[in-house]
Write a protein that binds this DNA or RNA. Structure first.
Lengths: 181, 181
DNA sequence: ACTAAACATGTAAATAGTTACATGTTGTAT
DNA sequence: ATACAACATGTAACTATTTACATGTTTAGT
């Protein structure tokens, strides 16, 4: 699949940046749906240079710190566009360890299950809170009338999706807890 | 993490079964949240036997087909219980290639984006339909008054979660399409 | 001046997961 | 009878991902 490849191409299309910057991007809203560690990013960058999809210029930061600013080549841009338009099948299993445990709920006592679900509910609510705060920041910075041509439209869509996802999860947890009385 | 290990232990706790049966289980509702191919399952079974968590008896099917019926050992059962009660942190990135594309929506023309979203909407609706049919089957087979002690309670919870997840995704897709006018 | 956090880049080793290779049996429908 | 789908089990090679090892610089705060 090489999804990381396209994640990097997409990030570089938005802006020239270093491997470190890419790793940082995965810590933001994007990280809700894709991420990679620097140990995977640096080798991938090397590979993409070898394939001619990206290139870099070395920039001196401060006195002597060499950093590599990567950017897309024409070929890289074309490959990104091709991937963006590809209509891929929805993949089935979004792995979720908590739901795996849920499937085996019959092997637990009712009180243990409640404990597990309550704990998950707390974590999910905390996460939702965090995401809502990020959205609020985005809205104060760029205004709340987002539209297709806003530079932050992708960011906005991803955040709203993450928020709705958490809300849905929370509702299901609460409903399931009620089911257990 | 060794999550597959626990998936297998959990399945074997429900019932003695073969590697093939385990692979089949991942094709059902469970597969919405965890799955593995037989090429990963068979070596893992071997490893779990070596670790003393499971054991098997060889059974002859028909004339000469040897199949291995695996079951939990006492140690295996204990390890499963320990994992079930563990309160793990919610992991951040549920990887989703479509949402990665969404993050890069600014690199697309409006019409391309609409096409992408419409296509995803169709796929998601189809998937929702499938899940709803599975739930209907479950309800005709076991009745619709599910409770904690129903043998199919885990199955039911997983299905309802998968359904709510798709509904949420669909709503977000529709809302986002409206946003693009 | 010092210190801690953030910036910056890599490699090595291990685990996890997918695709491809490889083989044979059994049950069901025609 | 025969053919096809489902049952059944494995290994090999490759790709993806994580954890650990390894090192050095710059910036901001005290």
């Amino acid at each position: 699949m090489r999804v990381l490849k396209y994640a990097i191409l997409g990030l570089l299309e938005q802006e020239k940046q270093t491997g470190y910057d890419i790793a940082a991007a995965f810590k933001g809203a994007l990280g809700q749906f894709w991420s990679a560690k620097h140990s995977q990013i640096y080798p991938e960058l090397k590979k993409l240079v070898a394939e001619g999809l990206i290139e870099f210029e070395t920039v001196i930061q401060g006195e002597k710190l060499e950093k590599k600013l990567y950017s897309l080549t024409v070929t890289g841009e074309a490959e990104l566009k091709e991937w963006m338009q590809r209509l891929e099948a929805v993949d089935v299993s979004h792995k979720d360890e908590f739901m795996l445990k849920t499937f085996f709920i019959s092997s637990m006592k009712k009180e243990e299950a409640k404990e597990l679900f309550s704990n998950q509910l707390v974590s999910r609510k905390r996460k939702l809170d965090e995401l809502m705060r990020t959205l609020a920041e985005l809205e104060t910075e760029f205004g709340s009338n987002m539209h297709f041509s806003s530079s932050e439209f992708g960011h906005y869509l991803v955040l709203t999706r993450a928020i709705e996802r958490e809300k849905g999860y929370i509702q299901w947890l609460e409903h399931s807890l009620q089911f257990m009385e």
